[in-house]
């Protein structure tokens, strides 16, 4: 039986790494247009859970449902084709490439194809890149600026714009506010809220509760590979969750 209230549902997920148990029986779900904060200490199992969801490795036990259907991902490619986009801070962008080329990296728009070569439709890519950026409220001067010239927050914005442009249904953000200034972090939170406004679900992974709490609809707490909390924001507070994370 499957519950259709959720975009994605992971049930009873187990994962071992050479004898060490990384996840034990974790249930995790994300609703439609919902922002779920995933928090927990280092080694709690957050990134393992996310890597299973984004197709990096299969669970040893447990099931994954996406839009009501059971799925087995054998590669990140498959998960992405379904609309699950993961944004890792370090690995999302090529700094020496332009914003436009980063947005269309691997999914270029071409005018025509000659065998396996596609002739890039640069005018359309310029136009669409600017459109995508404005979709998240990022107003940059030119799509040809290099990503290395952008601030950390703007880079996250470009990655989120890219996910939105390619019609992702679920965007997973791995520590998107790490190493960012307060102002920049606020910008990133604004991007995440924009995703929700456009009906896109997201998972916001962070160890900084003060970033997660204001934007998340629901907060899931992991500790030592187990889920120890799953609250709607209204039911809880930063203090309660902090206590929960510190106690065990």
């Amino acid at each position: 039986m499957h519950d259709h209230r959720y975009l994605v549902e992971m049930r009873n997920i187990h994962k071992w790494f050479s004898g060490v148990c990384a996840l034990r029986g974790v249930d995790f779900a994300v609703g439609y247009a919902e922002i779920v904060g995933l928090v927990g200490d280092n080694g709690a199992g957050k990134s393992t859970l996310i890597k299973i969801l984004s197709g990096f490795y299969p669970p040893d036990e447990g099931k994954i449902f996406f839009e009501g259907q059971e799925r087995h991902f054998s590669s990140p490619h498959e998960a992405r084709d379904l609309g699950i986009e993961t944004i890792y801070q370090e690995a999302a962008m090529v700094p020496k490439m332009s914003i436009m080329r980063n947005i269309f990296m691997g999914r270029e728009l071409s005018r025509m194809r000659l065998g396996s070569l596609g002739y890039l439709d640069i005018p359309r890519m310029e136009e669409e890149a600017m459109k995508a950026l404005q979709g998240v409220g990022l107003h940059l001067r030119s799509p040809h600026a290099l990503v290395e010239e952008l601030s950390g927050g703007q880079r996250q914005g470009v990655a989120i714009a890219r996910a939105m442009y390619f019609k992702s249904k679920l965007v997973i953000l791995d520590e998107p506010t790490n190493n960012l200034s307060v102002k920049e972090s606020e910008k990133v939170l604004e991007f995440i809220l924009e995703l929700k406004r456009q009906g896109i679900s997201s998972i916001f992974i962070s160890h900084n509760l003060y970033h997660v709490y204001p934007v998340a609809d629901r907060i899931v707490v992991l500790s030592h590979g187990e889920k120890i909390g799953d609250f709607r924001r209204e039911e809880t507070s930063v203090e309660k969750i902090t206590k929960l994370m510190v106690l065990p």
């Binding site: 993961t86 690995a91 962008m93 090529v94 990296m105 071409s110 596609g118 002739y119």
Partner: peptide, 23 residues
């Protein structure tokens, strides 16, 4: 001017990102 060229810059510039984007 081709997508292959874009993959080349991406591969040399940040292999992890390129692979993550399906290149």
């Amino acid at each position: 001017r081709t997508d292959f060229g874009n993959w080349m810059f991406a591969t040399g510039g940040n292999q992890v990102a390129a692979r993550a984007m399906g290149i």
